[in-house]
Amino acid sequence: MSRSYLFIPGNTPSMIQSHDVYDSDAVILDLEDSVAVYDKDAARELVRSFLAAHRGNVEVFVRINDVDSGHFHRDVSAVDDLAINGYVLPKANPQAIDALAKACNHPILPIIEDPQAVLDAYAIVRHPQVKGAILGAEDLTKEMMIERTSDGIEIHHVRSHLALVCHALQKPFIDTPWTVVDDLDGLAKDASLARSLGATGKAAIHPNHVALINDLFGPSESAIRDAERILAKASETGKGAFRLDGKMIDEPIVEKARRLIAAAARYNKR
């Protein structure tokens, strides 16, 4: 489960080239909002050409244009035969998910960015090809004609709602990016809040935000220790279910612990 998802403009070779230098767990090569209309074809070709030639050790997603944009099908087919970790689908809704699922073979990360999508979040996220959800608060608040603020009170409920939906379906919930490039204190507060509400990761629009996000969304020391103890007892007892500290521990919990330790290892915390 990735902690950070860095958006990289799909028509900017200098940033694509450095995609794995920024230390994010995942990158989202963007064909949508960061690419001007007159460059959509160029971005598509550049991303395709790049992916055909390279693989780093970060997760690579491609944000295609939305289903009604006129670029949708060309975007999908440009990269469908390549080794990507999935598509990021903006302006997601149940019909759009169906359309994308039909057209492609990769996992889907929908961006929930309008009120109806928030209300339909469960239907969107439960689709078998959907592997999580990203909150798009900028577009959501613009759609609702409300102000997007730094303490995020206006999206508080939405964050909780999506966190619940994603946790119920056991899929990642990726928080909306922080848009004030130079305000790292603001980012820290925002990311902490999202984490405390149940977000498992956060998108970023600037490389400078990655380190903080990684720090805040990685497993905490106490969580790592708990997992270590569970695994230690598990190997000690050699049984599928056992008692630890007077409580019953069963396989799903052990599995979660294993994944957490693996993540910690990946993030060099162990």
């Binding site: 074809d41 550049l46 395709r48 790049f50 030639a53």
Partner: peptide, 17 residues
């Protein structure tokens, strides 16, 4: 200072255009 895949991509885009 473009890498090969960039040169290739830009040429293909121009050919299509």
């Amino acid at each position: 200072g473009a890498l090969d895949y960039t040169v290739r991509a830009r040429l293909i885009t121009a050919l299509k255009r």
